[in-house]
Design a protein around this nucleic acid. Structure first.
Lengths: 183, 183
DNA sequence: CCATGCCTAGACCATTCGGTCTAGAGCGGA
DNA sequence: TCCGCTCTAGACCGAATGGTCTAGGCATGG
């Protein structure tokens, strides 16, 4: 995905646009324009068109989130430190996007076709994120059960805060999460 | 809105459909079919068409949420009891919808046109809900500041849990909120 | 130096989109 | 009775939608 191949450009463009306006809010031609690719390329790389592309874009975005989680926890001395860093990193990411973007993963959920493949993809992403945060938690000394419980709480709060942040056009609520759930 | 006028039917149909598939995921003709109304009626009652209707539907849904909040807290002996009842009521509502619906308010946010009126409407709804929960909190003995803080935490958690519930097709996570934030 | 893939290119298509417009039903008041 | 107004009714419109299809560029391997 770091390369500049047509396929990569399509995935990147799709992820960016979907997280701004959701699956149905973005037209295929708009994705093509942003990726500077013709229609033929899209349907060559993604035979099922928009739906295929959306799933792959969501997977890519989900992997990105895993990367951010790892970064946040890598040098954290405690679980609370890691969680706090994560919230701040996400707030920064939100600010960079102009205070509007959502995560492509849930954008697809809320907006995509009533397709079980879409729903399942989102569920899988959540599970991956929770597992990853929990893994860092146990590494940092939490009991496995407690780590899992706290990881899920953290991700629930992040998801809710992100939505509120969009409504308010302010990332403050993301930065405020640690004060709420790490008391 | 309890009446069966054409206008009411339009609002209800729009709210139901938007919360299932978001603003762009629903066509005007589909709303018309569900409401059993012709196009002329829509553009008579809502001169700006779909956008107007969406705002009004979101307002209506927001009022419904306020009603649920009041119901949950009306006979609650403590804030924690009220918050717990609220989570269970919402979980039941989620189950009734077949485990798929989101709230129309945030569906519009994530999906609607990049229109500031839409964003502002969502922000207003959140503020109303937080204020209402906080009001019940102070009535039940919390200090105003603490009530506001805990109300916001509760609504953040509900928002996040709702999204996760949709992904998992299970309302369990909504019922589990009290155990996470009322510790 | 041509043959054989992969990939790009974009014209083209049917369908659906949100929205406009004219016509008239139905009703309350003069 | 007939006017005037609100609301219903749906034909109709241009634009945009997602998707298909044929043609050709261009590299690689014989």
């Amino acid at each position: 995905m770091t390369d500049h191949s047509t396929k990569s450009r399509l995935i990147l463009a799709a992820a960016e646009l979907f997280r701004m306006r959701g699956y149905h809010g973005v037209g295929v031609t708009e994705i093509l324009e942003r990726a500077k690719a013709p229609k033929g390329s899209l349907y060559h790389h993604f035979p099922n068109g928009k739906a295929d592309l959306a799933i792959v874009a969501a997977e890519w975005a989900s992997d990105g989130m895993v990367g951010i989680i790892d970064e946040a926890f890598r040098e954290a001395p405690t679980y609370a430190d890691g969680a706090t860093t994560l919230c701040h990193k996400l707030a920064k990411f939100f600010d960079l996007s102009g205070g509007w973007d959502g995560c492509p993963v849930s954008s697809i959920l809320l907006d995509g076709p009533e397709n079980d493949a879409f729903r399942a993809q989102v569920a899988r992403s959540y599970e991956t994120w929770v597992a990853r945060v929990a893994q860092h938690g146990t590494r940092l000394g939490l009991a496995p059960e407690e780590a899992r419980f706290r990881a899920e709480t953290l991700l629930i709060a992040i998801q809710g805060a992100w939505t509120l942040a969009r409504a308010r056009k302010s990332s403050d609520v993301l930065r405020g999460i640690p004060a709420r759930i790490l008391a």
